[in-house]
């Protein structure tokens, strides 16, 4: 489904070139739940940004379902993300002036969904993540865990091929983190492909596969036959 070949990423760091990713080959099959782990600066977030088309590699290519996404224009990349990806960020990344349901509705409208249908889908999904009583709350009126659940609802509402989650539990307490991981596991159980960056090993171990990065290289790729 997703194949990355020889991914190199270099940054110009005040005249000095720094290589963050040093030639990564990586593939994800449909329905896999992959955790990318590693120390800070290992390159896991950079790799995720490249896989999700938020960044361009200096060298190498990414193919998703046979499409070389590196050749897409900016506008095509935005459309591709809209139609194929769902994003969950560490700091929730909800739009503060939109209510919970409006945050979920927005990408659906962008996909051309009718307004009523978009609201119906969003209501259902928010209900599934336990927020049916807080549909019309602004993000500022929600706890961190609730905001992250809205963020998940927004990511999955349009049934993306892949969900990218960047440290989704980093700002949450154990109870909320467990709840978020349970939602991910439920989604994956229903066939959702998920690529998650995390530094919390106990959550990484709940997935199919742990890919460990160090100094811009994959040093370990541990696969489990099924979810724990």
């Amino acid at each position: 489904m997703l194949t990355a070949k020889n991914i190199v990423k270099k940054f110009d760091n005040g005249g000095e070139e720094t290589t963050i990713l040093k030639g990564i080959d990586f593939a994800v099959k449909t329905g896999q739940f992959v955790a990318m782990v590693g120390r800070s600066g290992a390159g896991k977030s950079t790799l995720m940004y490249i896989l999700s088309l938020l960044d361009q590699p200096t060298e190498g290519s990414v193919e998703i379902d046979g499409v070389d996404v590196g050749k897409l224009s900016d506008k095509e990349a935005v459309d591709f993300r809209l139609n194929n990806f769902g994003f969950i960020f560490q700091e929730y990344a909800l739009l503060p002036e939109l209510t919970a349901i409006e945050n979920v509705v927005l990408p659906l409208l962008m996909r051309g969904e009718k307004k009523q249908a978009a609201y119906d889908i969003s209501t259902k999904i928010l209900g599934e993540v336990g927020l049916s009583t807080k549909l019309h709350n602004l993000p500022s009126q929600l706890s961190g865990g609730e905001q992250q659940r809205v963020s998940i609802a927004r990511a999955v509402a349009h049934k993306p091929k892949i969900i990218f989650a960047d440290e989704p539990t980093a700002n949450l307490d154990t109870e909320n983190s467990t709840e978020i991981m349970n939602i991910f596991l439920r989604l994956n159980h229903n066939g959702q492909t998920i690529i998650m960056v995390t530094h919390e090993l106990e959550y990484a171990e709940l997935t199919h596969r742990i890919v460990e990065l160090r100094d811009g290289l994959i040093i370990k790729d541990k696969k489990f036959s099924s979810l724990k």
Binding site: K75, V78, D79, R81, L82, N83, A93, L95, P107, M110
Partner: peptide, 16 residues
């Protein structure tokens, strides 16, 4: 700026 980036990230077009 950050929210504009997020919007673009989740697929909201620059035109919108």
């Amino acid at each position: 700026k950050k929210f504009i980036g997020i919007m673009k990230g989740v697929g909201i077009s620059g035109g919108a």
